[in-house]
Computed example of a mutant assay.
Amino acid sequence: MITLESLTKYYPSQLGNQYIFENLNFTLPEGRNIAILGSNGAGKSTLFRILAGSEYPNKGRVKTDKSISWPVALATGVHPQMTGRENTRFIGRVNGVENLDVYEEKVKAFAELGEKYDLPVNTYSSGMRSRLAFGTCIAIDFDIYLIDEATSVGDQKFRQKAKQALLDKSKQANVIMVSHDVKEIEEFCDSAVIVHKGELTFYDDLQEGLRVYKKL
């Protein structure tokens, strides 16, 4: 499970600190595929970044015993001077992948990079870079996958491939998703957390959560 303990997050401004969360205590239930919902500016993206470890609370902490992916579609940790293969091996080592050779080939095949896998990433198009980043993440068996508009990666054919890979993962692991696409949320998620006025509310029934979200 993931527990937020006395979590406080604010951003400085000319009007003083603008609090997103203040002394927030909350546990995300285990074994659920959760959509993070909220109106614009409510803090859902901030919460997502804190769960991903790409942003830190001002106070408090996130506590978990689960392995959590970085946001699936982001090119986090991909170094432009290294080749696709070198990036893959580096990411594999950092994440404790046991068989790097197998991992390397899985990523190459999934990302559909061909011989360009051995060229520096700074020679890649944005689509190629995104496919590499997606492949390095999806080829690792995490307990929880963080999904942020992940199925917008690449062309239509690759987007369908990416969506199917994530749906397959969601059957054996769990997902936490931020998306503006209700249809996509319904495909991936079975429950929801609504972010509203600095508080989090869990809805065991996704449809109930969506109804409340639409009234915000």
Rank of each mutant, 00 (worst) to 15 (best):
L132N: 06
S130M: 07
S125W: 12
P120S: 04
T123I: 08
L113K: 14
R129A: 12
V102G: 01
E115K: 14
Y103F: 12
L119R: 12
E112K: 13
A109P: 05
L113W: 09
V102N: 10
A111P: 15
L132I: 15
V107S: 02
N122R: 14
E115C: 03
K108E: 00
M128N: 04
Y124L: 13
T123Y: 02
L132Q: 05
Y124H: 11
K106S: 07
R129H: 00
Y117P: 01
E115S: 14
K108T: 00
K108L: 07
Y124I: 13
F110S: 03
K106Q: 13
S130H: 13
K106Y: 04
L132K: 09
A109F: 13
A111W: 00
V107L: 06
E115Y: 12
D118T: 09
E105T: 15
R129S: 06
V102E: 10
T123H: 03
A111N: 11
A111K: 02
V107Q: 02
F110M: 03
V121T: 08
M128V: 14
R129E: 05
T123E: 06
S126D: 06
L113D: 10
D118R: 13
A109M: 08
Y103A: 02
G114C: 06
R131T: 02
L119G: 00
E112M: 00
M128R: 11
D118I: 12
P120V: 00
A133S: 15
V102S: 03
Y117L: 06
Y117F: 15
F110L: 12
V121L: 02
N122K: 14
E105G: 01
L119D: 02
S126I: 06
D118L: 10
E104Y: 07
R131Y: 08
E115I: 11
P120W: 04
S130G: 10
Y103N: 11
A133N: 07
S130T: 12
E115P: 15
R131P: 01
V107I: 07
P120G: 06
V121M: 01
R129G: 14
L119E: 13
L113I: 15
E115V: 09
K108D: 01
V107D: 02
S126V: 05
T123K: 05
E112W: 00
V107T: 11
L113N: 10
L132H: 11
K106N: 11
V121D: 04
Y117I: 13
A133H: 13
V107K: 09
N122A: 03
L113A: 05
L119K: 12
A133Y: 12
Y103M: 03
R131E: 04
K106E: 04
A111C: 15
K116D: 09
